[in-house]
Design a protein around this nucleic acid. Sequence first.
DNA 1: CGGACGCTTGAGCACATTCAACAGACGTGG
DNA 2: CCACGTCTGTTGAATGTGCTCAAGCGTCCG
Lengths: 261, 261
Amino acid sequence: MVALPALVWDGLEAGGARRPAMSRQEDAAFLGRTKLFGGLDAEALDTVAALATSRAVGAGQAVFRQDGEATHLHLLVTGRVKIAQVNGDGLSLTIRFMGPGEVPGCVAIFRHVPFPASATAVLDSRLLLWSSARVGEMMGRHPRLAANALEVVGTQTQEMLHRLREFAMDPVERRIARALLRLVGQAGRRVGAGLEIDFPLSRQDIAEMTGTTLYTVSRTLREWERRGLVQSARRRVVVCDPARLGEMGTGHTGSHPREGA
Amino acid sequence: MVALPALVWDGLEAGGARRPAMSRQEDAAFLGRTKLFGGLDAEALDTVAALATSRAVGAGQAVFRQDGEATHLHLLVTGRVKIAQVNGDGLSLTIRFMGPGEVPGCVAIFRHVPFPASATAVLDSRLLLWSSARVGEMMGRHPRLAANALEVVGTQTQEMLHRLREFAMDPVERRIARALLRLVGQAGRRVGAGLEIDFPLSRQDIAEMTGTTLYTVSRTLREWERRGLVQSARRRVVVCDPARLGEMGTGHTGSHPREGA
DNA sequence: CGGACGCTTGAGCACATTCAACAGACGTGG
DNA sequence: CCACGTCTGTTGAATGTGCTCAAGCGTCCG
């Protein structure tokens, strides 16, 4: 609502350092900084990079689809991807957003099961791909990779657990606050008014992340804007006061939680 | 409410074959049938069994506590264990129940982080323990073990994801139905009226599994009892008609889901 | 036998949803 | 460059699911 400076979502500033095409060497260096491939020796990284296929996906395009066979491991290099699940009634739940260095759909690859959710690029993105068979080979050859994979998947389990608790016990307002803080943490960019979320995010998107409706999100954000906690415009959200927004999560500001102790 | 035959929860029938003390050889054979150790060769199993410590935990006693340091890997041999998380306000969420062959708290061990939840025996239970350091050694020595661990943790992630969707999109009634069916699936025993859940389960327990209150659970179960879907008595639940209860999950029997497509 | 525990039920209320209508921003094409 | 349609967001009013609070009852166990 407040006037926010004009902005393009993709391009130089969003993606960090510009890498238009990226050489094999640059890829290898990048891999070494990811959770999944970190700690492998230089030679291994080089081999892994050499085996990868590169793929560009435009904003709004699908990276992979729910229930599709998981034929390839996807590593996000630049851009941003939304992981979302659709249920039988056509309602959809956004599991999370992923950024550079993350591995959308990794559990499905490791378990050799269909993707449990769809991945859609929300910004122009570039990914590296390895076939499922290649991944098996690499895991066998590099025990460190297997250990990393366990760590990555374990982290995801605990994140899911954390969100499960939110859904089970927190009122909508608190879930929205937490979702925004999480997004700011993983995709926040300093701007004048505070921390802006790096990619276009509609009320509907937030609703799908928090299991509520776009109407409730709109009302909540509007109220927070009056109180100076956030600023927002069309598909743009800036968190001005993360601290006070966080108290909304811990706090007893508003209403009552659910359930009897 | 309907008269159910008298019953003791623990003892012969609950635990499958009776193993009062259990030798190392029996332990090894048992390990070979678990998800985590399955597929290891006989020699490895024997070594692993030899390295284990046995521990008995009485019903109602804690196996480990939330936020406690994860010093040991726990494998449940007999009995049943409840995994639950308490939040700051003293409200608790039951993540799941685990039975023989399962590995409560495994993610914390693998990631070297504190337990995210508490484990409590709901029946007299026996567990095998390995120190965290031992687990590291074993995983290094047996690649198959590392692969199994990834599979186990990956399965958990997907289960959490599934439950997350339930919490986000399903009304309370559906969540209760699903919870009962899940319990019957993993701890169901044939009885005259249908499938009885293997261990004592109160309204409060069900409420903590489904993020609701014991009052709502009571009303719901009562209604289902009138319709002949379930039978229940004090801390006992029998599912009489799993099929119709399942339709409650898929179906449009009742009300409306949440969220705008 | 008495207390604790688990279960049931009613009445009232509140958060959040549903439905409906509108307003402004964007971009597209004439 | 302006007109139009589409997309996103805002807001009001009515409704309802599920929670809170309160009371009572039966059963199990000490």
